[in-house]
């Protein structure tokens, strides 16, 4: 038998813990390198963009959870009454959202938000952030609703739900406490990690598209700067193009890490974050044997 290890060591020895360390380590390493070799305005822009992206993704996770939870309870309530028309309407609407490719939906949402900003209808930056996150959440939400409903279904198929019901326990307590909190925390958290990944990915992609394609109409001035819009900037794009140059011309490599730092940093931030979040979610699932 192995001796018991302190919780921190146990956490770091798992895949999720290891990748969390790798991610944070990479961020710090990159930060130091950029602090030394990247010009100050660009450095500040990147930090600003990274924090904005992270912030919107985190907000989206929060909204997604809240909206999915409310929707799931609504589904359960509407599904347990005799007249099920409300249930059908709700699931019809949800399936409609599902049928719009996420990227297209979010793109239109952002364009709408940008229009509001231009028209001066949004009083503060905070509101813009919140609206962007809600828009994103709306299109990621179905996945989480599926998970929550699946968990309820699982336990109603077993005797679990009925056994508690006939003891007189209220159904909301069974769902929220016994099913969600006690038995699905891990599943939900795991889903939220991957929601965070999706939110990052979609956020960067939409901003990239908007900045590349719609630059004259909706631009980084109206919406907060994020990694996606930074990458779409002309100089960043040049930096990325330089990677290709290095593939055929290896001698160019050293310059990559000094001259083309801005684009490279942004691209690296996007890729390492997506990769780390994915690995953390996989490792987390492995640890808890999901």
């Amino acid at each position: 038998m192995k001796t018991a290890r302190p919780p921190l060591v146990k956490f770091v020895s798992g895949k999720d813990g290891r990748w969390l360390c790798i991610w944070i380590g990479a961020l710090f390493g990159l930060g130091i390198w950029d602090y030394l070799f990247l010009n100050r305005p660009a450095f500040e822009r990147i930090i600003n963009g990274f924090i904005n992206t992270l912030f919107i993704a985190l907000l989206s996770v929060g909204f997604t959870l809240a909206m999915a939870w409310i929707m799931t309870l609504a589904f359960h309530r509407l599904g347990s009454v005799k007249k099920r028309s409300g249930f059908y309407v709700l699931s019809f609407l949800l399936n409609l959202i599902r049928s719009i490719p996420q990227i297209v939906g979010i793109l239109f949402g952002y364009i709408g938000i940008a229009a509001l900003v231009t028209a001066g209808l949004l009083p503060g930056k905070a509101i813009t952030f919140i609206l962007m996150s809600i828009c994103m959440s709306g299109f990621i939400m179905p996945e989480v609703i599926d998970l929550l409903r699946e968990r309820i279904d699982h336990y109603t198929k077993l005797d679990f739900f009925n056994a508690l019901r006939v003891c007189g326990v209220s159904q909301w307590r069974i769902i929220n406490f016994d099913i969600f909190w006690k038995n699905s925390r891990i599943h939900i958290l795991n889903k939220l990690i991957s929601v965070f990944g999706s939110a990052m990915f979609l956020q960067c992609s939409v901003d990239f598209i908007i900045s590349v394609g719609l630059s004259s109409d909706v631009n980084a001035v109206t919406l907060p700067t994020t990694l996606g819009s930074l990458l779409a900037k002309m100089d960043s794009k040049q930096d990325i193009l330089a990677i290709g140059n290095t593939l055929t011309n290896p001698a160019y490599m050293p310059q990559l890490f000094f001259q083309h730092l801005q684009g490279l940093t942004v691209a690296f931030l996007i890729v390492i974050t997506l990769l780390a979040v994915y690995q953390i979610s996989c490792g987390y699932a492995e640890r808890h044997r999901l």
Partner: peptide, 25 residues
Amino acid sequence: WSSSIWGKRAGMVFQHADESLNLAS
């Protein structure tokens, strides 16, 4: 049933204890 029978006038013990109990509690 929910208002005046469950847990008030009648109770039932299901056969699979593994399924009927909240194992995480």
